[in-house]
Amino acid sequence: MATTSAEVLQDTKKRSIWDGGQSPFKASYGKLMMWFFLLSDAFTFSALLISYGLVRYSHMSYSGSVENFTFSQEYWPIPEKVFEAVPFLHGVPLPLVFVGIMTFILIASSVTMVLAVEAGHRMDRKGVEKWLLWTLIGGITFLGCQAWEWSHFIHGTEAGGMLADGTIFTGANLQINQYGPPTFAAFFFFITGFHGTHVLSGVILNFVVFYNAVVGKYEERGHYEMVEKAGLYWHFVDLVWVFVFTFFYLV
């Protein structure tokens, strides 16, 4: 506090990335801007999920026992009855098992990402490479799972659904939906699709960072802050999935 304005000015001239002489919030420009970007992204996802809440709330919900549940356009489906298929186990009803595996994969890849960030703090190049590679594998596996789930959702189950005029159809698209009201399918595509796009861009971002780490760019630069910034984005993708999982699959 004792510094005079002249001294501050001197100081600013010496080391100024920000005009105040030191970074506000003690965070670098890139990290700070990543936080504010993620804040805006959080608003977008909130808007999507809350709109889902609005549409669901304005539809009839299924009343009756879970065992006797059948798909109908009249009421909103019970999600665990929609998402009960697992690859290679055709015809075996395993509610939410596959989405549980996907959740686990994403949380695990988030852990490997923090371990990469932690290795970066110690300037441990090999550690950064190893953990980033695991994160990449996790992300790609998650995307593969999501592709399978979409494909299954679009093609539908054998029983299918019935339109008002009696024609049978299977699966779902943006016009018709065997599982329930068409908006249910629309929200499924938009919310998980928007999240999947984030995972995809996260994988690309992580790959670029991985490449730079491998060729030694960060070692040359003297710090691994880029891993931290990519990490923030990756954790955010995980965070969003936690909410999608709850509000789309569990509630």
Binding site: M113, L232, H235, L239
Partner: peptide
């Protein structure tokens, strides 16, 4: 969400104003 943001994203250890 708290654990992801506070620990993984490190927000708990950042400056309070951030």
């Amino acid at each position: 969400a708290f654990y992801i943001v506070a620990e993984f994203m490190h927000l708990k250890h950042e400056v309070k104003t951030l």
